[in-house]
Design a protein around this nucleic acid. Sequence first.
RNA 1: GCCGGGGUGGCGAAACUGGUCAUACGCGCCUGACUUAAAAUCAGGUGUCUCCUUCGGAGGCGUAAGGGUUCGAGUCCCUUCCCCGGCACCA
Length: 811
Amino acid sequence: MDRYEPGQIEPKWQRVWEDARAFYVDNPDPSEPAQREKFYMLEMLPYPSGDLHMGHVLNYTLGDVVTHFRRRHGFVVLRPMGFDSFGLPAENAAIRGGGHPREITERNIAAIRAQMHRLGWAIDWDREVSAHQPEYYRWTQWLFLKFLEAGLAYRKAAPVNWCPRDQTVLANEQVIDGRCELCGCEVEARNLEQWFFRITAYADALLDDHAMLDWPERTKTIQRNWIGRSEGAEVLFRVDELDLDLPVFTTRPDTLFGATFMVLAPEHPLVEQLAAGTEHEQAVSEYVKHTAARSTEERETKEKDGVFTGRYALNPATGEPVPVWVADYVLMEYGTGAIMAVPAHDERDFEFAERYGLRVVRVVEPADGSDEEPGSAFVEHTENELLVNSGRFSGQPAPEAARAIVDWLGERGRGRAAVRFRLRDWSFSRQRYWGCPIPIVYCDACGIVPVPEDELPVLLPDVEDYRPKGIPPLASNQEWLHVPCPRCGGEGVREAETMDTFVDSSWYFLRYCDPHNDQAPFDRAIADFWMPVDQYIGGIDHATGHLLYSRFFVKVMNELGLVGAREPFARLFHQGWVRLGGTKMSKSRGNVTAPDQLAEMYGADAVRLFILFMGPADQDMEWTDEGVEGIARFLRRLWRIVNEVAQQPVSGEPGDGPLARKTHATIAKVTDDIGRRFVFNTPIAALMELVNELAPAMSDPAARLAGETLVSLIQPYAPHIAEELWQRLGHERLWEHPWPVADEALLERDTFELVIQVNGKVRDRLEISADLPEAELIEQAKASPRVQAQLDGKEIRQAIVVPRKLVNFVV
RNA sequence: GCCGGGGUGGCGAAACUGGUCAUACGCGCCUGACUUAAAAUCAGGUGUCUCCUUCGGAGGCGUAAGGGUUCGAGUCCCUUCCCCGGCACCA
């Protein structure tokens, strides 16, 4: 028998699959009813940064197992691949002197594509797309124009996150703990004119439609926190002297009678007007200036401070004037940028009131009369709290009072129920080069003018210098920049900013459906056949970025009639991090084990098996080189045993002996684990068990069945060795062979092992006929000498019988 | 602080709806076979303590800690500790 040589058989079968176009799939013919059920398998597309790492291997191997498993269950499986190829790393590499970003990117794509082929993943390469190709970004631009038309893309000046190193604006989602997600330096707040997508208009839909998604609970929770929906009321506080109303947002309208002062954010537009003409005018203006110079971090950690404006507003409930203060613990970005302060029931307001000697009035008390420190914490908003000092609402339970007070305010035009979100609109313009150009022309006469659809794409031009200088690099290309206004023909200037790469990846799964369409981003009928993605796999780090943006995009596209789906990803799975020495594997940490090097040493099949055998795929795992050795050993064992089986003459029926039963139990286990439980490590263990059972039983009549089943079941994990062994067993084209079905009759046995417990402890086990009546069963159990020793003449108080499992004697 | 997920052998981990001496499968380690030797391969062993003269048995204790429910708990409930992730001056 020849040796197992993955280096020989793996390229061989990869060529066979390619020649047979095994994993390419045609779009449905609209004139014919679909023959088979579709399955859209998708993994998050890679950023082409250089090489694949083990995290990618895990991600795409998971997808590959599911792809094979579904294909062999008769589904038409769409499993495409592409590249998220715009973005800063390539541009920064270009600046460091690596050539044009396009060259760097395309070189990296070629390298990754080769690695993907080497690992034998079943991908439909006819559908490959890359974000930086004009054929793709033409439609990214087209979609932008549709969003603009619908009023869902707009340009406005707003405080935004500015990364001083990368010299660009970042979305809130790209700022982690106040730092740039990419370069790690602290971001600054800047007031700049930027492009935004109106994702906030979909805040409720994004929350509500979680109900239709089979997603991990923690991912939904992360999105829920990020969107941050709060229910409450908007209440107007009147400043009579100036004849203006100050709106505040509160989640606790029941505490309105306890609002003894107001606080405005220093950035609040009315601050200046309020303080004007009072003796505090000077102090207020200094405080505002001082705050602007404070860092976000200082603002969050220092003791609360503020200044009085010299003005009073009327509490609409009590009718009493309350002082209006300015303090930077109130944030302009949230609510209305002004609050009613209830020091008795809010820690922050209490701290502030203590410091400045402001009045504290308790308005909510526990119904049981127990005492609480004022301001120690916001009281629970439950039926167990009653209002006090609240006029005609005194004595009412808090939740009921909240509703009644809002109604009462409504009647008098002083307030209404309101909902606020933490989510901000998505700022997506970037002051950098390597991204999708925004198809806009600015014209002095016409303002912001969209580039007409038939002039798309606006091609990304070459520039002399990519270096970030605060102004977009594209602006340096004068020839490109100056164009006639598409509307009036007068002098126009192109938008020189580019789009956030998250825009590119917010619709790529739709382009895969119809990747060569040059009339539209995709044909709706085709997209409606494939969408939604049935199984999406990728990192949880995209929970508030890509996974939120894509949902938003699909919702908008649905409303624009472009697609029937309302959600992009029906089912979602997150693979864990692959770690080495305790830290996440990454290039920057230098602790990367190169997948292709390992594939060279052990074969792609061993790498694929091991990455899934290490542990549950959704859990972080620690990489060990010894582990791969173990898997390689297993594959050699499998190779030897199946080759031996193949050389034996084909015998008669497998029968119903232990090996035949074990074989069918393995089919059931592997099928259930992959199909229903979506776990991938235990099937490998089950296959190892079957190998261990087959090895000493080569002359068993079921040996051939066991061997063939092993090969068939391992195919999704290790397709090359499986195909080779399948051929040696005298068959062909395992990749399209139906998945084996367990014989229920062989899973059921006519005898079973009865476990006998005394007081819950196992004392003996007996092989018992399955149809034995209960009374007989108890007698037999009692007769066991080991049980007798335990019973030892004691009285049996109760005998619990679990059918086909155990008897428990209680003494 | 609030929300979500975890804690099982020397290690990665099994035990899926409470029911087979918990620890499958693999790694590591130990012993043996083959070999001049090594690698590879093959066979066996591997939670812990106690007892029996042995081969081999018998028994106690063990799933972060403590308590509870149950005939029976790694699995359910309560309390505490620790780890990971998200949000957080969000009114």
